[in-house]
């Protein structure tokens, strides 16, 4: 029986439901020797804002049990630098490019979105309102419902591109944020971003990150993410992208069954750059063995 892995994620046509999570796959070329980019569902690039940014001092990451903390601080080349340095490379590939964007103010979010509207080869924008490592805003937009709506309205008014707000995990009611996204005209939502966290070196009594706190990612957060995805997916009819600790096909299937229409692989790219490929193959096998022809057949198929 033929299994069709292709999906339509809020207007973005993908060969399969497996993408790379922002910040864990660079801007595309970094892993190109090891991963055939054309086999991915989509590439989500590292967060981009208006101007070039330097990010935080090292140490920027610390490994912890079944995960890692990061406080990279969103360094990047800015919109123009990104388009100049990386879009020619990305356009040569047959894979949707989703740009993760952020700003310090509402106006900046809108301007970044507007600028990308005119750039050839961009399939959609993931709106990062949930980075735990930026002092200048960002996460504030993701944890205050009224500010969250304002960002989404501003970005929606600025661009016709498909929009995927990326939800913060540390909110009291995730369904409210998912619904607000849908009401503001978002085409999908993704979740979760890394979870605010901290680790201390007891010998030196210093924080293990220069930024003191950072975001926890990896298998340690997966059960938290599965629950939040389940809650968000029940609340909206737009597609949900499940993110958090996915390192095997079984992990990804949990998210699909919980209600995600697609998934993103993050930290596991560091462990094994072949993870996304294994996840794609494993989803196909699972669908075939269960007698399904399309990914949608299992999305939200949780039996309670």
């Amino acid at each position: 029986m033929h299994v069709d892995l292709s999906i339509n994620l809020g207007g973005i046509r993908m060969k399969n439901p497996v993408m790379t999570a922002s910040g864990t796959f660079g801007y595309g070329p970094e892993y190109a020797d090891l991963v055939n980019l054309d086999t991915l569902g989509a590439i989500v690039v590292k967060g981009i804002c208006l101007e070039p940014k330097t990010g935080n001092e090292p140490p920027r990451t610390a490994e912890v049990a079944s995960g890692m903390l990061n406080a990279i601080g969103l360094p990047g080349p800015g919109v123009d630098g990104f388009v100049r340095e990386y879009m020619p490379f990305l356009r040569r590939h047959d894979v949707p490019v989703i740009v993760n964007i952020w700003g310090r103010t509402l106006e900046e979010y809108a301007e970044v979105a507007a600028r990308f509207s005119d750039v050839e080869g961009i399939a959609g924008l993931e709106i990062n309102v949930s980075c735990p490592n930026i002092k200048e805003g960002s996460q504030v937009f993701g944890t205050h419902l009224d500010l969250f709506r304002k960002v989404l309205d501003a970005v929606r008014a600025a661009t016709p591109l498909p929009l995927i707000p990326k939800l913060a995990p540390d909110v009291s009611n995730i369904a409210d944020f998912a619904r607000a996204a849908e009401e503001s005209g978002a085409n999908a939502v993704s979740l979760i971003n890394s979870f605010p966290a901290m680790a201390i070196d007891i010998k030196t009594r210093k924080p293990r990150l220069a930024n003191i706190t950072g975001g926890l990612s990896g298998p340690a957060i997966r059960p938290i993410a599965v629950r939040l995805v389940w809650l968000a997916a029940r609340a909206v009819s737009i597609p949900v992208v499940g993110i958090g600790g996915i390192s095997s096909p079984e992990d990804a299937l949990e998210f699909l069954i919980a209600g995600a229409s697609a998934v993103a692989v993050g930290t596991a790219n560091f462990t094994d750059p072949g993870t996304a490929g294994r996840v794609i193959a494993g989803i196909e096998t699972y669908l075939r063995e269960a007698g399904h022809q399309r990914v949608d057949d299992i999305v939200g198929s949780l039996r309670i």
Binding site: T24, G26, D33, L34, K46, P58, T61, N70, F270
Partner: peptide, 15 residues
């Protein structure tokens, strides 16, 4: 330096 990905993607290892 501390390293994450080792291939240039994660921006951990900066000097």
């Amino acid at each position: 330096t501390n390293m994450g990905c080792g291939v240039g993607a994660c921006l951990t290892c900066v000097v």
